[in-house]
Amino acid sequence: MISELKITTGLRGSRTFLQEGYYTRPFKLADIGAYRADSTLCLMLMTASPGMLDGDDYRMHITVSDHTRLQLQTQAYQRLYTMQAGARQQMEVQVGQGAAFSYVPHPVVPHADAVFEGHNRIYLQENSRLVWGEIITCGRKLCGEAFRFRLFHNVTELYYRGRLVLKDNLLLEPARINVAAHGQLEGYTHQATLVYADTQVGAAPMADRLLELLAREPDIAYGVSQSAGPAIVLRILGHGAEQLFSCLRNMETILFNHHLAIL
Rank of each mutant, 00 (worst) to 15 (best):
E145T: 04
E145A: 00
E145H: 07
A146I: 01
F147R: 02
F147V: 06
F149Y: 12
R150L: 13
L151T: 14
L151E: 10
L151W: 02
N154V: 08
N154D: 15
V155A: 10
E157I: 05
E157Y: 04
E157A: 06
L158K: 06
Y159M: 09
Y160V: 05
Y160H: 13
Y160M: 09
R161Y: 09
R163I: 04
L164K: 11
L164D: 05
K167Q: 14
K167F: 00
D168M: 05
D168T: 11
N169G: 00
N169A: 01
N169K: 02
L170G: 06
L171C: 11
P174A: 06
P174E: 13
P174R: 09
R176H: 13
I177D: 11
I177P: 02
I177E: 05
N178W: 02
V179P: 03
A180K: 10
A180G: 07
A181E: 12
A181T: 09
H182W: 14
H182S: 08
H182V: 13
Q184K: 03
Q184L: 06
L185R: 00
L185T: 03
E186V: 09
E186T: 10
G187E: 10
G187A: 11
G187K: 07
G187F: 09
Y188T: 08
Y188Q: 08
T189R: 06
H190W: 01
H190G: 03
H190S: 03
Q191S: 03
Q191K: 11
A192W: 05
A192F: 02
T193N: 15
T193A: 14
T193F: 14
V195H: 05
V195R: 02
Y196H: 10
Y196Q: 04
Y196L: 05
A197L: 08
D198W: 05
V201N: 14
G202Q: 07
G202L: 08
A203S: 13
A204F: 05
P205D: 11
M206Y: 14
M206D: 12
R209K: 10
R209D: 12
R209C: 01
R209Q: 12
L211C: 05
L211K: 09
E212H: 11
E212P: 00
L213S: 15
L213E: 14
L213Y: 12
L214M: 13
L214I: 10
A215S: 14
A215L: 12
E217R: 10
P218R: 03
D219T: 00
D219F: 05
Y222V: 00
G223E: 04
V224E: 04
V224N: 07
S225W: 08
S227V: 04
G229Y: 06
G229M: 07
P230K: 03
P230L: 09
A231P: 06
I232A: 12
I232G: 08
I232V: 13
I232Y: 04
V233G: 00
R235F: 09
I236L: 12
I236Y: 01
G238F: 02
G238H: 03
H239I: 01
H239G: 15
G240H: 06
G240P: 00
G240R: 02
E242D: 15
Q243H: 12
Q243C: 07
L244Q: 02
C247V: 15
C247N: 10
C247A: 15
L248S: 08
L248A: 13
R249A: 07
N250H: 14
M251A: 15
E252M: 01
T253W: 11
